[in-house]
Simulated assay, not measured.
Amino acid sequence: MGTSKVNAPLQQKPQGAFVRKFYSSATWIEGKAEEQLQHVAQMHDIQKIAVFPDLHPGKYGPVGIAILANRLHPQLVGNDIGCGMSLFILDLPARKIRPEKAAKRLRLLEGTWDGDPFALMEERGLPLDATPSSLGTIGGGNHFCELQVIDKIHDQELAEQAGLIKDASYLLVHSGSRSFGTEVFEEICSHGSADLDLDHPQAINYLNRHDQAVAWASLNRQIIAQRAAKALRSEAKLLTDSPHNLVERVKGAILHRKGAAKADMPFVPLAGSRDSLSYLVKPTNNDEESLLSLSHGAGRKYDRSSMHGRLNNKKSDLARLSRTSFGGHIVCEDRHLLIEEAPEAYKNSAQVLRELTGQKLATTVAAFQPLVTFKKAKQESKRPTSRRNTYE
């Protein structure tokens, strides 16, 4: 295990990229994440890397970083292209919510959406064969739909600008491009190129398909929110949509974000675990070294497989994991996922926020308390004994 240096300055590794770490020694960073970071920094075509306090290991490279490069590296973004978080306000007063009743209603999010996806896909310029049956579904892993209420408004003026209402209820939706993003990623990987010049035909095709996946993921979050709002007998209005797995063209270079939220927008959600506060922040964008990016959440502290050894599989423990210290409810019938996504698996979201505000990358707008976190409403099928060791 390793930790970062206090207020680590802009660094340049020998024959490597400039690396700027936006966290202090107060933030827990695993050594494997640091090793992956060093590997990425040594790639010959990487210019700059911004690293955030939610940094943790990933499958192809670390999560919680933004990377400016001269070439395209699809594996640094991975398969869940366009994954992000969207915050919605509901016309449902917080005082009228009964968490247990709301949890039962949100179970309707399980399974496929019964709406017509094609008009919405055509409206967004998406190919009609882009896995329409997956639209409106959350997926597994760390994805969720969470019913929230405001715990505290930190900046009243900014809260009004963001459209927040103290006594309202909210939905925070975390999901991505599902099987469509996987299809786009596997297609580029099938050519065997780890990196590509930006004018290479495969790169051009990938970037076009990538942009479709980002749009697909945004639409997916919108439909999930509409499904949840309908189950709660309310209407949802989008306040902010913030992707954190994507690439962008930047003056002849390419900016990769892996678990790093786009900060060139008015407001960005910062998700906690299902038993901690989440936040809405306003990016300050006063530091070019941050590559217009921010942390997207608390970030994992322990990988999925190790959580099965850290927590017991007894009924009493599983019952505890289905409730929160706020009196909220967790809808997750997959006991493996319930353990792997336990609050103990994540870093402290308040500490991540302190680092971001301390580094003057963001201003806190409001804190949100979880009431119901939906992940999965059906019992899991039997899983193989050999489990993939992953943080993502």
Rank of each mutant, 00 (worst) to 15 (best):
A41Q: 10
A41R: 11
A41S: 15
A41L: 05
Q42I: 01
Q42P: 01
M43F: 11
H44L: 13
H44S: 15
D45F: 12
I46W: 03
K48F: 12
K48V: 07
K48T: 14
I49E: 02
I49H: 08
I49C: 08
I49K: 06
A50L: 01
A50D: 06
V51N: 02
F52L: 09
F52Q: 00
F52T: 07
P53E: 10
D54Y: 06
L55F: 03
H56L: 08
H56V: 12
H56T: 14
H56Q: 10
H56Y: 02
P57V: 13
P57G: 07
G58M: 10
K59S: 09
K59L: 14
Y60Q: 13
Y60S: 15
G61A: 05
G61F: 00
P62V: 02
V63W: 01
I65G: 04
I65K: 00
I65F: 03
A66S: 14
I67G: 10
A69D: 12
N70S: 14
N70G: 15
N70L: 06
R71L: 08
L72W: 01
L72F: 10
H73E: 00
Q75M: 12
Q75F: 13
N79R: 13
N79Y: 15
N79P: 11
G82N: 09
G82Q: 11
C83V: 04
G84W: 12
G84F: 13
S86K: 10
L87P: 12
F88G: 11
F88P: 13
I89H: 06
L90K: 05
L90G: 04
L90Q: 03
D91T: 11
L92M: 10
P93W: 02
R95W: 05
R95L: 11
I97G: 02
I97W: 07
I97P: 03
P99G: 04
P99C: 03
E100W: 00
K101C: 07
A102H: 11
A103F: 04
K104Q: 15
K104C: 09
K104R: 14
R105M: 10
R107V: 10
R107L: 06
L108T: 14
L108N: 07
L109H: 09
L109K: 09
E110M: 07
E110K: 01
E110T: 09
G111L: 05
T112M: 12
T112K: 15
W113V: 02
W113F: 08
D114Y: 02
D114T: 13
D114I: 08
G115L: 09
G115E: 05
D116W: 04
D116A: 14
D116H: 08
D116G: 06
P117V: 03
P117C: 04
P117N: 02
F118Q: 12
A119Q: 14
A119R: 11
L120V: 00
M121D: 05
M121T: 05
E122S: 08
E122Y: 08
E122L: 08
E122I: 00
E123G: 00
R124A: 14
R124T: 00
G125A: 06
P127C: 01
L128M: 05
L128I: 11
D129V: 06
A130W: 00
A130P: 04
T131Y: 04
T131W: 01
T131K: 13
T131A: 14
P132N: 07
P132E: 00
S134C: 06
S134T: 09
S134K: 12
L135E: 02
G136W: 08
T137M: 12
I138E: 01
G139T: 03
G139M: 05
G139N: 09
G140D: 11
G141L: 12
N142W: 03
H143I: 05
H143E: 07
